[in-house]
Design a binder for these strands. Sequence first.
DNA 1: GAATATACATAGTCAGTCCTATGTTTCTCG
DNA 2: CGAGAAACATAGGACTGACTATGTATATTC
Lengths: 199, 199
Amino acid sequence: MFLVVATQTERRTETRARLLEAAAELFAERGIEASSIDAVAALAGRTSGAVYDHFGNKDGLLRALLESWVDDVSSAVVAELDAATTLDERLLALWHNVAAPPSGDGRWIALEHELWAYAVRHDDTRAYLERRYRAAWAGVEVAAADWVDHDTAGIGPSVIGLLLGLEMMRRIDPSAVTDDVALDALRGVVLGARSPARI
Amino acid sequence: MFLVVATQTERRTETRARLLEAAAELFAERGIEASSIDAVAALAGRTSGAVYDHFGNKDGLLRALLESWVDDVSSAVVAELDAATTLDERLLALWHNVAAPPSGDGRWIALEHELWAYAVRHDDTRAYLERRYRAAWAGVEVAAADWVDHDTAGIGPSVIGLLLGLEMMRRIDPSAVTDDVALDALRGVVLGARSPARI
DNA sequence: GAATATACATAGTCAGTCCTATGTTTCTCG
DNA sequence: CGAGAAACATAGGACTGACTATGTATATTC
């Protein structure tokens, strides 16, 4: 019951890819702790033995998934941002990448939430996620500096947090978070950042 | 090994309260699925038998916890909002109730996240959470209508989402989300809601 | 105050999970 | 082409968790 593939290296590479793909799918859909190694292996068309040979244990699988995944998303976002010219276009591009990701893989945001929930309870994963978010925050602040004419220092967490929070609300009731609602909120955070209260 | 309390009703009432308190504690700290019935019972000074006699199964325990919890938080928030007079004071009161809840129970936001994560995968709990959030959104919109002089329809999900999202970022790195950062973002969302882009 | 009901405790079942040890088939290399 | 290695598969151990069935001490009722 073995695949007949040209070389061992090819077979190993494909197995690794299938396992990571299956893990991403299941982790996003059912949650990390609720997904068993056997279920991941089965979805990949392999058995648990393959997982342990490749990743050692469940944590190794998660770690490998994160590594293979780091900037898939952010690079996709950057590409879309480059194509936009007005502020609203850019903000909408941001939101669409969260709410309705175009690039095949429409589950990354669910995986992001799952990862956050896992990380806040597991210190080593938390450290990893902290680096990741710091980079994302910095990326937002640098990009936003080109969009508006005031200081954008410190708005990274607000923008990323708003995007994730809006997605949470959208998962509760999609009709409550239209593009207009999201756009207004994002514009408010980016533009109103340092403006004094008007009331 | 039985408590000697006046009446059976009293004993039952106290046991129920202790079990719910323990469930809230563990669910918030370790997650719902990661908390065993035995652990909840042990923390409450009881055994699993008590849990099954009171709530039938684990889902019943969660359901009861939610019921007992519905507006504890929102009523606390409303009280603090009444004491505030300026917009910034109100927004800061909102944020502090999320970031550093004063009322004894500093875990409600973690429980809220845990509940959200659980609900998006369990339809019946999701239906419950939907009602809850709709009420919260409406509450925000009604309250905000008194704070600003423009239409606040539709900002409920943005404000709630921003609060939750900011708290997520704060859990990753507390120093990244200062009161000022949160206040700026909230002000932006509330004030800039329907204003046209200025750039 | 005996019979019954109540409020739990105790013991045990069954299924699921992570992981280890070992087997088997295919590939690789001299 | 034969020996060894590589890439998995298989079997099983040890544990945990939800849930059930039953036992027992306390309270209530007649």
